[in-house]
Structures are given as structure tokens and as C-alpha cells.
Design a protein around this nucleic acid. Structure first.
Lengths: 365, 365
DNA sequence: TTGTATGCGTTATCAA
DNA sequence: TTGATAACGCATACAA
């Protein structure tokens, strides 16, 4: 066990005061070049590393970012969080932060978790995933002035908010999101381009921001192509079996769609079971399904079975989250090589980034 | 922003000294009951929570456990880490610890990460996943007396270790693992029970501890049933395409197997593509594949497509990891309601837990 | 530009 | 059983 090397050790070795060492660390520009070099040399020679606990006690900042790890929901989409987390950890490290995990069975208890986490650990910020309508978590954190960023837009219903009277409009907060409507539109447009005219949609029931957004991408694309989406969509909770049932229902109609766009890979996987497979067709080993199916999230399942799917730039989204947090935490005096990612440079408010997903075309569509 | 409530605030309110408050927190038994109650009341009335940073500075312990989040490897198996992480976070919270994430592109740089993490954050312990032969990370941590537990057995080659001379035998460390051989044996035995006699195996090339372990479960089971496994196994790196190729090769033989056991869901998914599907058979909609295929890990993919697979008790494994760490960190004076999980109570060494996986039977086999 | 003194909130040592 | 005092490592106001 090596001797503990503190700022005093470094100071002795570099024959300066502790304060000078501290200055080299926190405000290098005010130290004379020669001294600075000597101190730096001592630092690396001794392998000195600042003690976070002591620093935190003094500054009140922990350089810790908390993010909730959810229980794997339906399973198929679980890896999305996984990839996001990895990106987040990597980006945080680069910015000098660390990621701390916490769990909560639901949003209500999540707020309770904030309280104890903040009390004990002086967390610098939170990353919230999966925003809901009028998210109570965002409100709680805003109210207490706790920095946070959400991966997911705030899906506040403007009408409802307005009806609350007063200035109930939630103050804007930094967020990063992926344009789901755009992704679904890409998928739909590609189907149109390849000749499909009757394109169905299987998505989640109305009410979830994410789901409604994705559905609109499909409907709007059809409309701008002069097609009527009416009757061509089905609502189903996320899940394999639900997707299969919805697709079956869609295909049972008088004029069944020749392609189905789904709001998730889980639904798409189910839908794939419902469409007549290549084996049932007369032709031999043509792997192309007569009914094209596309999913959303480009999960490992999609990669494995050759499902065309919309891929979210998760690593980039995570990096944006960290950037936005760093903007707030480090007082905007960052500005490294990351480039400006603000989607709306005109607005003076907090950064809000909407990323564009990409379509990964595979055999299924 | 509520006033900062420290141990001094509590002391004032309870009209005791700060030390007494500290005692109530850390050594309740030495405080008179009446005083203790008064202090406890003040604590909850004020909503006091101990400041981790200050505590850490004094005790040198952070109550932080670090675990590496790997980049999603081949994808399909990614969710395993996800579920393990969730279990770990939950168990750690219950034991009063927190989980901190870090990344590293490979094992070599992972050791570098230890160094800086330990220097800056005074981490209490590490959880290592995916142990390798003669794991350098374990050696490094052992040498520096850093507490850690591995999820995965140490796969040290006894012969090689011995040949190094000296006492090169690595000192044992706490580990938790799932008995892969047992899991594959369960799958194989079930196939035998359902009448299969020619059962193939598709696994990873010899050399990986995990892979060899799983293969042995298959081979041993066949042998104890009086069958000869020779020629019935194929080695392939993990992956969908690799699994398909290996299975195809296996099925191309003169006497092709009627069932294939795979070392992973990725391989199994590939193998499924290689076997004649139900659609190719004469009979109608019998969903049962003529060639049974089983996977390993019970990933979401398996759940979605109905692949029989071996399921690891990840939440339990994670809980065991935390228990073992707590044993070390809290000096063995734990012993809550978790029950003794030591697999070898006779050995005085560090706890080592081998858990039994379970077979999830679905349509594919 | 560099050095000195002080305090962050907690726990450990020791005396009362 | 309780209370006073010191110390953990760092950063900051202030003096030199």
C-alpha cells in the first residue's frame, strides 16, 4: 500500500506551498510557468490524484451524475438503456464526471430516491430517461433547483397546462431526444419508394408522447403522398404477442396492407409472425417476406433476424446529455472540440437537442 | 433550498453534543436509550442525512462499488449485463452501497482505470464480470489489497500455474458464478428424455473457461447416457452467422443430429436458420421444428422467438456479489436475513458461490 | 505570484 | 454515558 500522497506531499516535493499546488490544479493560469511545471512534475512523479471527498466537501460538488437503471421491461427493448448507459458513462468520464446508478420501481418512488440521493451524496445532476406527460420528476427537480437533463422531450399537453391557470407552464429544461416521427417517416417513405401503397401501422395506444410521435410520422408521410391512413393503424401495448395480434387484425381486412410499420421491435417481431412467411409462399428460398415489416430501435433482435428497423444514435444522445449538463454545471465555460449541438441557438433557454435517427434496411423490408 | 442540516443542527435540537449524535448513528448501543430516542427524533424531524463526503474523508470509505459497463458486444447477449447491473444496484442499495459505472475498451486499460478510480474516489470495491484465464485484473487488485468479487469463476489453468514455479498460485478471491455445465447438461438431458439420441453441440472454440465449461456439460451428459459425443460438436466464435454455419456443417453429415445444443442464444439463433423450418416440412402449421435447438442465457431474443434456453439467475448472482463484498467490507459482521449462501462452508477462505441455472422450455425444443 | 489561516461535516481519541 | 478537541484533504479569502 503506497503512502497516501496529498496536496501537501506534492507541495513539499515541488518546494512550494499547498496553495500553489491547488492553484496549478484549479487555476493554472495564475501560476508562473516555471513553478507550474515543477508542480506538475511532482504531481506525476508522485502519482498524485485529488481526493474527491475532500474536494467535494469544500466545493459541495461531487462530480457524480445519477441515472436510474430500470428493470428490464418487456425485454426486447432492454438493450436500448444498456447502450445509452455505456455512452453516458464514456461521455461523463471524458468530461470529468462519473455515473452513479440507482433503482426505483416506479416514478413515484423515484422522486423519493432523489431526495435521499441528494441528501447523502450531493449529486451534481440527474439524467432522466423515458419522459412522461407532465413529468412529476422534472417538476420536482426543477422546483429544487437540481440540475438535470432528460433523454426524451417533455410531452406536456399545452392545453391542459394552460387550463391550470397561473403560470403552471413548466419551466423548460435541457433535453435530448431522438426524432421518432422522423424515423418512422423514413421507414414509411422508403416503403412508398419501393412501390408500397397500402402501408399499415402498429403502435401503442394514444396517450404516450413517444407513441403518438411515432404514429404521426407514419400518418403524415402517407398524407403527404396523397394517401389516406384511415383504418390502416392498430393500437397495441408493447409486446410480441400484442404485435402479432394487431398485425393479424390488420391483415384480415378486405384490402390488407402490403407493408407494416411498427412502433417497436417487439411489435415488429410479433407482426413478422403474423405475415405470411417465405416458407408458405410457392417460390423457393426467397428470403423476402411478401409483407414488409419494419421495427423501431434496432435492437439486437432486429440485427439477428434481419428486421429493418429505425436506429437511434444512442451514444450521441448520451454525449449530448453530458454536454448539456456540463453546460449547466461548469457554468457554460466549456466549449471543447465537441462542437455546438444546440438545436435552437436562437433561444436563450436551456439547450435542447433533437437528433435524427437512421433507418437500417434489412431483409424484412 | 432548505437550510443545510448537519450533525451540529441535530445536536442543538436534541440538546446533546455532536459526538453523541455521531454515536447514535454509528454505535447506538453505547448511548443511553432516552438520549438515543431524543436524537433520533431530532434526526427525523430535521430530515437529517449524513454527508457521505465528510464521512468518507474521515473513514476513508466511500460506500461506492465500481462495475464496468462493457460496450454491447455482439448485441444479443448484451441484456445479460443489463439485468445483472439492475440486480447489483438494487442489492447494493439494500446494503447501503452505491454502484458507480466505468468503461474500458479492454482488460489492459481496465487496470489503468482501477488506478485512477481508486486514487480519486476511494472506491470500496470492484465487481468484475467476465473472468478470463489467469485474470490479470484479479491479480492486480489482489496485490493491492483492493476488495473485489468476480462474477465468473477464476479459470486458472492449474498446470500452467504450477509450471511458473514459486507460489504463483493466485490467492483465492470471492466469486459468484452460474454453473454453465449444469445448465447445458439440463438442456441435453431433457433432449435425451424426449427421445433424442443424436444431439449436437455448437460452442465457442476451446480455450475460454466459460465455453469449455458449457461444452463439458453436453459431452458428459451424453457419455453418462452411454452415447459418444465424438464428431457431434462444432466450434465457432459467438455470433449469428457463425452459429448458422456451424449448424449447417453439423447437419450436412451422414447422420445429422436431431437436436443441437448451443453455448449462447446468438449461436442458437443462427442454428435455427440452418435447421429445416416448419414451413419446409410437409405438415401444416406444426410450429415444432424437426431439429430441436436450445440456447443459453435466455435473452429477450429467446423469449421473443420461442427459443428454449438456459436462464441464469442474474438478480440472485448480483445479490450474492454484494453479500460477499459486504462480508469483506463490513468485516463479516453482517448476517441479516439473507441467509448463508456460502457454497463451501467448510473452507475458511473467501466465499465462493456457484448458482444453478434453470432451463426455460419453449417451442424450439 | 506565493504563503497563511480557516472551515467544510464527520469520526476518533481522550478526558470528564 | 457524554462532551471537548483534533484531524481527514482540499479550496478560498486574505495577507505578504
Amino acid at each position: 500500500m503506497a503512502e497516501k500522497v496529498t496536496i501537501a506531499t506534492v507541495a513539499r516535493r515541488a518546494r512550494v506551498s499547498r496553495q500553489t499546488v491547488s492553484n496549478v490544479l484549479n487555476a493554472p493560469h495564475i501560476v508562473r510557468e516555471e513553478t507550474r511545471e515543477r508542480v506538475r512534475e511532482a504531481i506525476s512523479a508522485l502519482g498524485y490524484r485529488a481526493n474527491q471527498a475532500a474536494r467535494q466537501m469544500r466545493t459541495g460538488r461531487s462530480r457524480l451524475i445519477a441515472v436510474r437503471i430500470e428493470p428490464t421491461r418487456d425485454g426486447v427493448n432492454g438493450s436500448v438503456l444498456d447502450r445509452f448507459l455505456h455512452g453516458l458513462t464514456e461521455a461523463a468520464e471524458a468530461a470529468g464526471y462519473r455515473v452513479m446508478l440507482y433503482t426505483a420501481p416506479d416514478s413515484r418512488s423515484e422522486i423519493g430516491a432523489y431526495d435521499s440521493l441528494l441528501g447523502a451524496y450531493d449529486l451534481d445532476a440527474f439524467v432522466l430517461t423515458g419522459t412522461e406527460h407532465d413529468d412529476a420528476r422534472a417538476a420536482w427537480l426543477t422546483e429544487r433547483n437540481v440540475p438535470f437533463v432528460t433523454f426524451g422531450r417533455p410531452w406536456d399537453d399545452p392545453a391542459q397546462t394552460r387550463s391550470l391557470g397561473r403560470a403552471a407552464v413548466p419551466s423548460p429544461h435541457p433535453w435530448v431526444d431522438v426524432n421518432g416521427a422522423d424515423g418512422v417517416a423514413q421507414a414509411t417513405r422508403r416503403l412508398l419508394d419501393t412501390g408500397h401503397r397500402r402501408i399499415g401501422f402498429v403502435g401503442w395506444p394514444t396517450g404516450s408522447g413517444v407513441g403518438d410521435d411515432r404514429r404521426s410520422g407514419w400518418a403524415d408521410t402517407l398524407r403527404s403522398a396523397g394517401l389516406d391512413p384511415t383504418g390502416l393503424d392498430r393500437a397495441a401495448p408493447d409486446g410480441f404477442a400484442q404485435g402479432e395480434a394487431a398485425a393479424r387484425d390488420l391483415l384480415a381486412g378486405a384490402e390488407p396492407p402490403t407493408a407494416i410499420v411498427c412502433a417497436s421491435d417487439s411489435l415488429a417481431l410479433g407482426a413478422l409472425q403474423a405475415v405470411p412467411g417465405p416458407g408458405d409462399s410457392a417460390a423457393g428460398s426467397d428470403h423476402r417476406s411478401p409483407v414488409a415489416v419494419t421495427g423501431f430501435d434496432d435492437t439486437p433482435v432486429a440485427q439477428a433476424i434481419g428486421l429493418t428497423s429505425v436506429s437511434q444514435p444512442l451514444a450521441q444522445a448520451a454525449a449530448c446529455c453530458v454536454d448539456l449538463l456540463a453546460d449547466v454545471l461548469d457554468g457554460g465555460r466549456r466549449g471543447g472540440p465537441v462542437g455546438s449541438r444546440r438545436s435552437d441557438p436562437a433561444a436563450g433557454g436551456p439547450g435542447q437537442v433533437l437528433l435524427r435517427p437512421s433507418l437500417v434496411v434489412r431483409q424484412s423490408g
